[in-house]
Design a protein around this nucleic acid. Structure first.
Lengths: 217, 217
DNA sequence: ATCTATCAAGTGGTCATACCTCTGCCCCGC
DNA sequence: GCGGGGCAGAGGTATGACCACTTGATAGAT
């Protein structure tokens, strides 16, 4: 418990054995602690490699939700519904609170989406756009929840983006972006509502189940 | 690995040592597993007593959010904002989907709130009302998220309920309940919006910070 | 007889040590 | 130059002992 202790030059922690000695506890308790922190999304433990810091506050949330809804199709339905519930409101907040930095980042994500050639790149750019919007909204709670939902729906985005192409997503994002630039909260809300409802409908069509349209918010 | 195995007559698991033997693994791995499951809200481990099953799918979520926003006042602000964002929408879904069973349970919670003498009883009845509403909405994801938020805001409810009394909460709940009975989604939405905005304003006043009113949803 | 303090059994929590498994990288042979 | 083998070091598991906490039974005082 001296000098640099567990300072971690890069994001890596000292080995478990060394850590145990530094903290004057047994390796057992170190292991239990790392396990907890891993589940909390603070650490990542890699067999044969080491332990490093990460920043995934959404990990516990997606984990819990995944465990909660094992059946993929019903999970996606509720996922889409949750997004329709939350994202438009969040877009409104984002439009009212976004700083210049946020707007630049949104712009960059939009350009990355336009330039994407691989589907995976498009997905990442799409997620990034929504993530920045959540950050701009200035509510960490909503941000983490949405991030978790995005994580759970990564696979579904694969399906929808592949079937409808990125053109429509680009169009929708542009409308949202425009509302944010003009600081028009309600407009951003409506634009986002259109966007997520379209995604929900795609998903419903993809699975052929019931569902349908939803009204205002 | 025979007979009743880890059947758990009541909700209790066999002791760790016995469990390890039954599953042919060391106690170490049993302990790591229980730790994980405890953090997932599936088990509760009590020193000197034993391990039992619980059902707290919201535990990881509240844990993550708590770790995310250590400062109490800012957390409560964002908490209130998140509730304003989500709960009205959820009330609308609940009004559209509630079964007779749900309506009876809401009624019971309402009566319990009216009959509460201790503040703690009132808090539980209040939480119960919102919980049932979330269940009626038929979206497990939103339900878990809201449950987590309720868990985090338990302390704040103490303050607001004590300062404003239960009378106003009863009134607001009655309006929501009425809308649910009549299956009026939008009415339920609006009634809930009034309710959570009032709570948010109480909180803001309680802390004397900035904040203020919020428009529609 | 009742109440209280003490104790003992059983539980999870920690420790120490040894060994297994996986990963990354160096180094040697080709 | 390149590819494969092996080595060092990381986390993963196994074991056996002991510590700390809860609970309830039990012996004692009142």
């Amino acid at each position: 418990m001296s000098e640099r202790a567990l300072a971690a030059n890069d994001g890596w922690l000292p080995p478990e054995r060394q850590l145990a000695e530094q903290l004057n506890v047994s390796r057992t308790v170190i292991r239990e602690a790392t396990k907890r922190l891993e589940l909390q999304g603070v650490l990542e433990v890699r067999h044969g490699v080491g332990i490093r810091f990460v920043d995934r506050p959404y990990a516990p949330v997606s984990g819990a939700l995944e465990l909660l809804l094992p059946e993929a199709d019903e999970r996606l339905r509720q996922l889409a519904e949750a997004r329709v519930t939350i994202e438009p409101q969040m877009a409104r907040l984002a439009a009212e609170r976004a700083t210049a930095k946020h707007r630049r980042a949104l712009d960059a994500a939009q350009q990355r989406l336009a330039a994407a050639v691989e589907t995976s790149q498009a997905i990442e750019a799409d997620l990034e756009f929504h993530r920045i919007l959540a950050q701009a909204a200035g509510n960490r709670i909503l941000e983490v929840v949405l991030e978790s939902l995005g994580e759970l729906g990564r696979a579904s985005r694969q399906a929808t983006l592949a079937s409808t192409g990125v053109a429509r997503a680009l169009e929708h994002h542009a409308a949202i972006l425009d509302a944010v630039e003009r600081r028009q909260g309600p407009a951003a809300h409506d634009a986002m509502l259109i966007h997520v409802q379209a995604s929900a409908n795609d998903l419903a069509r993809f699975f052929g189940s019931a569902s349908g349209s939803r009204r205002r918010a």
